[in-house]
Design a protein around this nucleic acid. Structure first.
Length: 382
RNA sequence: GAAUGUACUAAUAUUG
């Protein structure tokens, strides 16, 4: 069991969830560690719904199981589910960080704050998460106070501080904090590199990339993306080929670069060559085909393929689908897809989706129906 | 004595 589980975990960590699942199915015996490795694999791949669903089928759950479930619910935006899991686990102290993080990523800052304050012992993980939580809300002032109050700081806390500044438009403060770091890790440099990428500062980004002591797959992907921004497709391609190894994110970035600045066929070729695909990869290719009228039927076909692969669509997928229908001028199909959204537990049509429908109706000359939709839709129009 | 976990950095869409 141990060796099988090790293999399974190794696949899961590398995002090869299908291989991990195959291992799981082939195993003669499984224990809780095996199950935990599987649900963690789903989480790595971003399949949090699946992770949680499988978790409920585990015969014997331990605190790592509950932690994964709280995280899974948190990532799905299901705070009630997270709280429920937390309660089922008896509100174990080792789970307060997970619960706190679930609040934080769902922007329930008040609840996050009180969970944080309620912790009897706050470790460096909790402190760092609090820094990030404030930063994500743009509360730089509070973020600084928390950072100063931290009893002990490690490299990740420092990186969080630098990222907090750069992501709030304070590059100078970020660089200042960066220079105070005693010993840089690769992610420390990646934060600065990415800050340049987001600011469209090609020269600085490239320089940072070459000057940093070491580079990892994140650094390489950032470099790829800055070339893509500048429509330097050859440079992007070269970067992609020079990368020592690639993740599903690097691949998706390359597909996206082809889709935006190259050709649809190159994008498709790269997509088909991907060793693994996740939800974002599928969304990229759906959108790529939806950009032009002649690709829209392929968007719908790919959506079917995606379902057959067992990848659950999200609201972005459906936006691509409805945009495709809109370009094609097919009202009936669009309404069908709108109904499909409702069939998914975790999704409901949003204003952007209705906007597509209204756009479509308007374009096909059904103005009266369009007005009916606007008055009848469950979300207020803009 | 071996396998699973929480905080920082990289990929997708919505003023048509």
């Amino acid at each position: 069991v141990v060796s099988w589980t090790s293999m399974l975990a190794a696949f899961g960590e590398r995002g090869r969830i299908n291989d991990a699942k195959a291992m799981f199915d082939a195993m003669p015996h499984r224990n809780t560690v095996t199950w935990n490795a599987l649900i963690h694999g789903y989480a790595i791949d971003g399949q949090y719904e699946q992770s949680v669903m499988v978790a409920w089928r585990i015969p014997q759950r331990d605190w790592r199981t509950w932690q994964a479930m709280i995280q899974g619910y948190g990532e799905c935006g299901d705070i009630c589910g997270a709280e429920q899991s937390f309660a089922c686990a008896g509100q174990d102290k080792s789970l307060t960080n997970a619960m706190f993080h679930a609040y934080a990523i769902n922007r329930h800052l008040e609840k996050a704050k009180s969970a944080f304050d309620g912790m009897v012992y706050k470790d460096v993980v909790a402190w760092t998460a609090m820094v990030t939580a404030y930063a994500n809300e743009g509360l730089t002032r509070e973020m600084m106070l928390v950072f100063d109050d931290m009893p002990e700081k490690n490299i990740i806390s420092w990186n969080a501080l630098v990222a907090a500044y750069t992501q709030n438009g304070e590059l100078d403060m970020g660089i200042q904090a960066f220079s105070k770091i005693p010993l840089w890790s690769v992610p420390s440099c990646n934060v600065i590199l990415q800050a340049y990428v987001e600011r469209h500062q090609l020269m600085e980004a490239v320089q940072m990339f070459h000057e940093m002591p070491e580079r990892d797959v994140v650094s390489w992907t950032s470099l790829l993306m800055v070339y893509a921004q500048y429509k330097l497709l050859d440079e992007a391609k070269k970067t992609f080929m020079l990368m020592p190894w690639r993740t599903v994110i690097s691949w998706t970035g390359m597909v996206s670069a082809y889709a935006h600045h190259g050709s649809l066929s190159e994008a498709r070729q790269a997509f088909d060559a991907m060793p693994q695909k996740n939800l974002v990869s599928w969304n990229v290719i759906l959108e790529a085909y939806a950009m032009n009228v002649w690709g829209c039927r392929e968007t719908l076909a790919l959506f079917l393929a995606m379902n057959l692969e067992g990848v659950l669509p999200d609201k972005t997928s459906f936006l691509a689908i409805l945009a495709a229908c809109s370009h094609l001028g097919v009202v009936t199909e669009a309404c069908g897809y709108l109904r499909t959204i409702i069939e998914y537990e975790n999704l409901r049509p949003e204003r952007v989706h209705y906007n597509c429908i209204v756009d479509l109706l308007g374009r096909t000359g059904q103005l009266a129906t369009a007005e009916d939709v606007i008055t009848a839709m469950p979300v207020p129009p803009d």
